[in-house]
Design a protein around this nucleic acid. Structure first.
Lengths: 341, 341
DNA sequence: TGCTCCATCCAAATCGTTTTAAATTTTCAC
DNA sequence: GTGAAAATTTAAAACGATTTGGATGGAGCA
C-alpha cells in the first residue's frame, strides 16, 4: 500500500496524508484523526527507505560492539531499546571482527561515512581516544559512554567511578582494613584510571601507603579475578580486603578465597562494582556481596535519550552527565580480623 | 558527491558508472577499472538510502537479542560480522525490552513488516515456536539458529546437541560413573530437550536407570550452576559426575564441589559444553575442563552465509545444517572414585 | 564504400516519500 | 453579501540512486 493509493482511498492528497501522519499543524485535527485511524485500519505504513532518502536521516544509532565480553551489551542495549521504542529509530551494531586497533578506526570511519547511522555511541573510552577525534573530524554526532580527557568537545554520560571506589575503599579502611587489594579493569581505559584514582585518594586521605603490588588490571572475568586474587593471597602479609571492578571478578575472588580455606566476609572483605544484571545478583551470592551499584540498563536508556537530544540540535558541549553511584553494604564486608593472638 | 556529479567528472553517464560499480558485464573492463579507481580517489559512495529505495532491499539482517544473558550475542555477532564484512549488509539488533512473550511476537512482527531488514535470525527456538509460524506467515525470510519441530518449513543451522551430550555421558559411564547429574539449559527450549535426550539415551544404552532428581534446568549462569550442584551434592548417594550446559554453569559447579571439600577431576568429574569464548577458556580452568566444543563464532559466520544464500533465492527447505560437536577430554574427568574401603 | 553486428554507452522512467509554493475553501467582521 | 484573512488542501519538485529500452560508434566482411 503506497501513500498515493492510500490517499486516494481517503479522498485526500498525498501531501495532506503525509502531514497528518507526521503531526504537522497545517492539517485540521479532524482530518488528522481520520487519517490516523484509517492508516491503522488499512495497514498503511510509509516506506521507510523512501522516508530515509527524502529526509536524509538514517533513523539509526550505531554501536560498535567489542569482543572482550567485559561489557554487557545486551543489558545496555535493552536500555536503549526501552527509550527508542517510541521513536522510529534502530540500533545498528557493528561487531568488531578483529582485535586490531587500526581496523577499529576503519570500522568507525566506515560507519560514520556510510550514511547508515545518524549518530554513534562510543564505549570504554581512553583518556585520549582516537575515535573521538575521528568522529568529530568526520562531523558525525556521537555520545561517549564514559569519559575522555581529550580537548575535542564531546557529549558524554558517565558514572562517578572515582567517587564510588573512593567511598568503597574508605569504608573498608573504616572497618580497620589496611592491606586492601584492588582488581581493576583493563589498564589505560578512563574508567580504570578513575577507579585507581579513587582508590589512591582514599588511601592517601588516611595516610596509608599505596602499594603497587596490591593493584591489578585486566578484563572483567571470573578467571582473572581468581588468578589475581590467588596471587594476592599468597603475599605475606596478605590483603584482608578486595575492591573489584565487576561481579565476574568478585566471583573469581570468592573462589580464590575459598580455595585458600578462608571465608569471605570474615577473613576477607570484598566490595565489587555491580552493573545490575538480571542473572547475577549480589544478594544471591553466598555470602551476599557488598557493591557499588549503577544500572547499566538505565545508562543505556539515558544514552539513547541524550543521543536524541544531540540529534535534535542540543550542542554536544552541553551534554555532560555524571551519575552518582550507590554503595550497598551486605555480608561480604566486615571488620578486619584480629591477627591470631 | 552525487552520482551525477561523479559521472560528469569522469565524462561518463550515470548509468555507466552505476553499472561499472555494480560489476555489470555491459561495461568494458577498462572503464570499470577506471571508475573503481576514481571512486576511491574522489571518495564517491552511492547514497545507501537511495539504493535501498530503488532496489527495495534493506541491506540489513535483523537479530532479536534476548535479555537472559545466557546467549553470548557478541561472539555470535562477531562471527556474522566476519562474513558480512565484504557484503554491504548491516546487523540490526532489536533488544527485547521486556520479558513478555506477547511483546516479543509484536517485536518480530514489527521487524518483519517495517522493511528495515531483509531477513531475520531466530535464536533459542522451542519445538513449536510461534515466531517461526509468524515470520513464515509474513513472508519474511529467516534462519533459525537451532531447530524446531514445527511443520512450517524453515532454514536452520544447529549443532548436534543430542550427540554431544550422548557422547559426553557415555564417556562418563565408561569411566565407571553411574550417578551422573545433568545441569541443562532452560526447560522447553529445543536444545535443552535434545541434550536431555542425548543424556537419557546414553544411560539407557548401558541399562542405567534415569533418575529425574539428577536433572536440573535453568539459565546458564554461575549462580544456578552453583545452586544446583550444591543441592545435588547433598543427595546420598551423591552424584560422582556432572554434565553441564555451559562454561558458566561449570564455574558454579566447580565452586560447589570445592565448597564441599571435594576435588574436581578426582572426586567429581565434570564435562561442560563450551561455545568457545576468548575470555573464558576450558584450558585455563583449574583443573582444566573437559568439554563438548562448538564455536559460536563460527556458527555466526555460517549463519550470515546461509542467510545470504536464502536471500539469493535458495529455498529454505534446502538449508538444514547440523554441526558435529567435538568432545575434548581434559583434567576434570577421571575414573569414578572407589568408595572409601 | 556500405552494411551488419557487437560492444559500449546513454536518456529518461522509476522507487515512495517529504516539502515548497500556490490554490482553494472556510471564517468572520463589516 | 462582500472581501480579506485564516485555515486547509493540493500539484509538482525534490531526494539519489537503478534499470529499461535505445542510441552510438567502430570492427568485420563483402
Amino acid at each position: 500500500m503506497k501513500l498515493k493509493e492510500f490517499a486516494k482511498q481517503l479522498g485526500l492528497s498525498p501531501t495532506t496524508v503525509s502531514r497528518a501522519l507526521s503531526g504537522y499543524p497545517e492539517v485540521s485535527e479532524k482530518t488528522r484523526q481520520r487519517v490516523a485511524e484509517e492508516a491503522v485500519r488499512l495497514g498503511y505504513r510509509p516506506n521507510i527507505n523512501a522516508v530515509r532518502l527524502v529526509t536524509g536521516r538514517a533513523g539509526a544509532i550505531g554501536v560498535v560492539m567489542g569482543r572482550s565480553g567485559e561489557f554487557q551489551f545486551s543489558e545496555y542495549m535493552s536500555g536503549m531499546a526501552e527509550r527508542l521504542d517510541s521513536e522510529d529509530i534502530d540500533i545498528l551494531v557493528s561487531p568488531l571482527a578483529e582485535q586490531d586497533g587500526k581496523n577499529e578506526n576503519q570500522l568507525y570511519s566506515r560507519l560514520a561515512t556510510s550514511g547508515r547511522v545518524d549518530a554513534v555511541i562510543i564505549h570504554s573510552p581512553m583518556p585520549n581516544d582516537e575515535r573521538i577525534a575521528l568522529l568529530h573530524r568526520l562531523g558525525m554526532p556521537f555520545l561517549v559512554h564514559g569519559r575522555s580527557e581529550t580537548q575535542v568537545p564531546h557529549a558524554w554520560l558517565d558514572i562517578d567511578n572515582e567517587g564510588a571506589i573512593r567511598r568503597a575503599t574508605s569504608h573498608l579502611i573504616d572497618l580497620g582494613h589496611r592491606r586492601i587489594a584492588m582488581i581493576n579493569g583493563r589498564a589505560g581505559l578512563t574508567f580504570s584510571l578513575h577507579r585507581d584514582k579513587g582508590y589512591r585518594e582514599a588511601l592517601a586521605q588516611r595516610g596509608i601507603q599505596f602499594d603497587p603490588r596490591l593493584v591489578a588490571h585486566g578484563h572483567f572475568t571470573d578467571e582473572l579475578g581468581f588468578r589475581f586474587a590467588r596471587s594476592f593471597l599468597e603475599q605475606s602479609p596478605r590483603p584482608t580486603a578486595f575492591v573489584a571492578g565487576s561481579m565476574m571478578t568478585a566471583l573469581g575472588i570468592y573462589r580464590a578465597v575459598r580455595s585458600r580455606g578462608l571465608v569471605v566476609g570474615r577473613d576477607i572483605s570484598v566490595i565489587a562494582h555491580d552493573d545490575v544484571f538480571p542473572y547475577l545478583t549480589a544478594d544471591n551470592m553466598v555470602p551476599s556481596l557488598s557493591t557499588t551499584r549503577s544500572s547499566l540498563r538505565a545508562a543505556g536508556a539515558r544514552s539513547a535519550d541524550l543521543v536524541l537530544q544531540l540529534l535534535s540540535g542540543r550542542p554536544a558541549t552541553e551534554i555532560h552527565e555524571l551519575w552518582p553511584v550507590e554503595l550497598i553494604l551486605r555480608e561480604s564486608t566486615g571488620p578486619v580480623p584480629q591477627p591470631a593472638a
